[in-house]
Amino acid sequence: MLELLKGHYAYFFLMLLFVIGLYAMMMKKNLMKKIMGMSMVQSATIMVWIVAAFKHGGTVPILDRSIPVDNPDLYINPLPHTLMLTAIVVAVVTLGVSFALVISIYRNFKSLDEPTILKRMK
């Protein structure tokens, strides 16, 4: 058990972050807090990929004459990082769209509190 914790503590933290984000998204009444939760969920997902790509003793995959090129253990797989660059862009765009929606909700209902908005929607 201790071995599992020692080797994977980052994943446990990320799981916690993911669940906190999910809780905020589902349970909080304020729309801004929901957006914060959404952002946490996305960040946790991105971090899982980054943490998974980490390798002890590995380095960036750039040609360096002092490091032998035929040993893959000395290089970190760059694919997850590049993929997560795309995922970060997606997360930023989602944030942008959600802010635009929140602004237009505020203009229409003069509130960011979900029960109040639902009451005024009737």
Binding site: L22, M25, L31, K34, I35, G37, M38, V41, Q42, T94, V97, S98, L101, V102, S104, I105, N108, F109, I117, L118, M121
Partner: peptide
């Protein structure tokens, strides 16, 4: 519509 879209956005992002 923006309220409905926001609900869809949070769940869809999840």
């Amino acid at each position: 519509a923006p309220v409905a879209a926001f609900k869809y956005l949070t769940l869809g992002t999840a």
